[in-house]
């Protein structure tokens, strides 16, 4: 029992550090994508720190809630935020180990994000306006279709490395050296489509719209104001950063620190930032060169991703 306490303490402090770091950097990623999109549209775009200014403004405001809403409406953003924070501790970022990797691997990560989504969707039905119900219905539909594709894509890469635990996965890949297998490309393409679907970006959903016919995620969170909205936006940004970090971990974990030396950590930080930035550019280009799909075309896109994941599994293992 005694030697476990410093271990537990160390894991806890690393978890807090990682969660704080990802929470701090998530708004920067969101604004960077917005700015790159704007530049592609020949506009200036917001200043890079706009995400932080928005969060600070919203956190200072008075919370305004509907008369018909109950405690579920208040709990929704809090559980969504809590789930995002808990998920940050399960993913290896700089070091080839996640702070709470003993707590769970890929399956727990997917379950955590599902918990957040369930809480938000349920709370959306609480105000009695049709927008919330519509957004919740559409979001749960897309999530239901995206989940098998997400699972298969994750399995394709995890089974190749022999473990479902993200820390062990990254460590085994780093140990055996990064080998390129054609199935990786297919699995990456499939998972990239799912990341676009789960983070609510064009072509699945438009994060900048509030038109009734076109919003999915935004409809779910339409009724939130003040601190509640700040929590939802912050958690969404963290989810985006988490998904991109997950892609980095699964497909290009080069440069992750395998020891606690400061030099290794700095190199890992630069490598991670660079890779996430490259993926952000990929997201920006996808958003800028595609039109938003009709809702009933999204299943076709998701089935493409499912097919790619299947192919990846088939090529690798059959």
């Amino acid at each position: 029992m005694a030697p476990m306490i410093p271990d537990a303490l160390r894991a806890f402090s690393l978890a807090v550090l990682q969660a704080a770091g990802l929470l701090a950097l998530a708004p920067l990623l969101k604004t960077a994508i917005k700015k790159m999109k704007a530049r592609l549209q020949n506009r200036q775009g917001p200043p890079l720190l706009q995400g932080y200014y928005d969060l600070a403004k919203l956190l200072r405001k008075e919370p305004v809630r509907s008369e018909t809403a109950s405690w579920v409406f208040v709990a929704g953003p809090r559980v969504y935020f809590g789930a995002a924070v808990a998920a940050t501790t399960l993913v290896p970022v700089l070091v080839a180990a996640a702070p709470l990797e003993g707590a769970g691997g890929i399956l727990l990560l997917v379950g955590t994000l599902a918990l957040g989504r369930f809480a938000l969707a349920t709370a959306a039905l609480d105000t009695g306006s049709a927008f919330g119900g519509m957004g919740a219905s559409r979001d749960m539909t897309i999530a239901a279709l995206a989940e098998p594709a997400l699972m298969l894509g994750l399995f394709a890469s995890a089974l190749a490395a022999g473990s479902l635990n993200l820390g062990s996965l990254v460590r085994s890949v780093l140990q055996h050296g990064i080998t390129f297998h054609p199935s990786d490309l297919l699995a990456f393409a499939g998972l990239f489509i799912i990341v676009i679907a789960e983070t609510g970006r064009i072509p699945v959903d438009n994060p900048a719209t509030h038109l009734e016919l076109t919003m999915i995620h935004e409809a779910m969170v339409l009724e939130y104001a003040g601190p509640d909205l700040a929590l939802v936006e912050w958690a969404s940004a963290v989810k985006e950063l988490l998904y991109l970090t997950l892609l980095v971990d699964l497909f290009m974990p080069v440069g992750m620190a395998t020891s606690a030396r400061p030099v290794a950590i700095v190199v890992a930080l630069l490598a991670w930032a660079g890779k996430v930035f490259l993926l952000a550019i990929a997201v920006t280009i996808t958003e800028s060169t595609n039109a938003k799909l009709r809702l009933f075309r999204v299943p076709e896109l998701v089935s493409i991703s499912l097919g790619l994941a299947f192919l990846a599994l088939a090529i690798r293992f059959l």
Partner: peptide
């Protein structure tokens, strides 16, 4: 793979 739901609940 290894899961400890209690730790996850604590993180949540």
């Amino acid at each position: 793979d290894h899961v400890v739901p209690l730790v996850f609940a604590a993180a949540l």
